[in-house]
Design a protein around this nucleic acid. Sequence first.
DNA 1: CTGAAAGCGCTAACAC
DNA 2: GTGTTAGCGCTTTCAG
Lengths: 342, 342
Amino acid sequence: MATMKDVALQAGVSTTTVSHIINDSRHVSEELRQRVSDAIATLNYQPHGPARSLRTKQTRTIGMIIPDNSNPFFAEVARSVEDAAFENNYSVILCNSDGSVKKELNYVRLLIEKGVDGLAFISAGKDPQSIEMLVRQSIPWVVADREIPGADVDVAVDEVLVENLAGGFKATEYLISLGHKRIGCIAGPFQLTPSAQRLMGYKQALQGAGFTVDPDLIIQGDFHSRSGYENCRALAALSDPPTAIFACNDLMAIGALKAAHDLGLSIPQQLSIVGFDDIAWSSFSIPRLTTIAQPKQEMGRLLTALLVERIKDDQLTHRRMTLPVKLIMRDSCAALSSINAP
Amino acid sequence: MATMKDVALQAGVSTTTVSHIINDSRHVSEELRQRVSDAIATLNYQPHGPARSLRTKQTRTIGMIIPDNSNPFFAEVARSVEDAAFENNYSVILCNSDGSVKKELNYVRLLIEKGVDGLAFISAGKDPQSIEMLVRQSIPWVVADREIPGADVDVAVDEVLVENLAGGFKATEYLISLGHKRIGCIAGPFQLTPSAQRLMGYKQALQGAGFTVDPDLIIQGDFHSRSGYENCRALAALSDPPTAIFACNDLMAIGALKAAHDLGLSIPQQLSIVGFDDIAWSSFSIPRLTTIAQPKQEMGRLLTALLVERIKDDQLTHRRMTLPVKLIMRDSCAALSSINAP
DNA sequence: CTGAAAGCGCTAACAC
DNA sequence: GTGTTAGCGCTTTCAG
């Protein structure tokens, strides 16, 4: 491959001039500029990234660590991160951690070696060892959708969160407003913050309405459709089953929709369901799913913007943005009627 | 950050020795090995990728160009590419082209500059200009899910394809075997090869059964749910509507399911639908979708394996693998009954 | 078994 | 306006 030296030779100038022309970093006469452009074209020259990175100490690449890019929610966030990165002239290295701390740590190490300019954790970054590593190397990093185990990090981390608690609250409050009194909850893994907060919102709404929280009505799922399916069946099998269910993500809500259908329960007449996320699927389920929408695209864009800013200036103070969620009323909920009243 | 020189100094050895220890590239006495390990640990040394790449001419990074990672089909393929790459010690740079030739070309240029060791095109790589660029720089590349506009490329390209034609054939044949005589087809964009082949399979099955192909029954969609929805309505509005529909991907099939539901058509009693892809969603739709399964995971793994092999040895002869598809019978099809017979 | 030194392709003082 | 030159951090001959 042609190098800059070849171009310089061909154009009869120094590599300095070539470099400055390519990077537009100092004024060069029109004549030389033209000669160099021609040389570049005829030699088919393309700059060599790694060599440039070695000098400039930047790769214009960021790492994105995510549990699973094939989960529709993460897929949409990942997509918007990539879009925003591209617009800012950054490439993104995709890393699926499956939520494993070990895999995450491996990726962090790898990414640091690759010389990434920054790291975006999406629903990840909960491993103190990984974080310590980043901090030690002073690599900029940002987090979305999961709070960092707080106090032990005395470092500026930018976070993009959503109103998980408010979302759980709104979902439940809505069901209450429809007259439901026994409202089940298919929760996510309790140890994950978004999950715990949504559940908390559910409980607070219940208590706010003067209901007691019945632990039998709360089941832990794993955010996958199958667990929504099974947990919905479990809830329906209760001696005093709920007339409405808040599923803590859409994947589980859709599993619940399916379970209800298989049980011959018609939705929303006999059972109301509300989800969380508003993935594309939710507009095409039968019935269409009422859900709490997260601003997935905005999350990705904002996350990337924060990272890009921090790469430029690591003195910035810590920023934590909490994005609003919104109840999207579709067809999976109905007022409690005499049909299914206790 | 600590460099190799620092480590060498600290351990009282040459950088040569440090390098050889790190890369395990020649024998070193146990004593020095230990001293160097200690130095690495105390200095928290991590090798600098770009510097290494500058010397070795490899980055252990591949580029993956894909239309849209948030499309469930591509998401699953992308996931398995990333998994396989990770296992082979490669990182993957994610590039969403939206099927745009221009974006694709930009990415190719960018990736070459980054010095990627290879490129994986998934449903992309149809732009001759991009290809020419790759070929000129002799960067290894492989393609999945889309045939390269053939003859003009006189270069070894590895391709992973699926039996699209056979898939379209099987889907249609199955519907015929259920007694359907008027079978509609919601096709993908005609200009894409997988799409065209599935449609061809549909036509061949029809003709094989002695039916004539009715052009009114074939509508072009865009592979998104909404177009499945609208085209199903269009088909249903025909004066002599079909009793079964083959949708060329699951996203459109699910849109069709929804349209049928909205029209009050019960599936499968009044309308049978078969999809293509077998995305996760299809097992949870109502009813569950009968579809032609593509081996998505195998596609990704195989694609990556081929790329890794070609990176190792660019003399390999061109390989084209065509993976089998499989009819998955679920609940969206039924025998033509007297109820909906013409 | 170990080390000296050249150089990968580029950028950026520093000169003129 | 332009060029000379010294590295960036690493690998790898070549020499011993």
